[in-house]
């Protein structure tokens, strides 16, 4: 039977990166406009869709950097 390692923690400076995809989509002045359009999409739409990629990137980095050694 294993005992949980006492030095374990879920804190890490990398966790701060998670704030980026939380704050970005909640600032409408960053994306609430029509021009410039991308592939016909107004800024409001293509910018918010591209925030999805920002979210994926940030969570992936945090996951990679906080993996427990094994």
């Amino acid at each position: 039977m294993t005992t949980p390692d006492k030095g374990r923690t879920d804190r890490s400076p990398w966790n701060r990166l998670l704030a980026v995809p939380i704050i970005l989509p909640l600032l409408p002045f960053l994306f609430n406009f029509d021009e410039p359009r991308l592939l016909g999409f107004p800024g409001f739409y293509w910018l918010q869709l591209s925030f999805i990629a920002v979210g994926v990137l940030c969570t992936t980095v945090v996951y990679r950097m906080t993996r427990r050694g094994r």
Partner: peptide, 23 residues
Amino acid sequence: ATGFFAVPYTIVTYPIVFLVLLR
């Protein structure tokens, strides 16, 4: 546009719950 809230909603949720759900 107001209906598009579903997109920021589902972007924001994962980084918010990332650490919470693990616990």
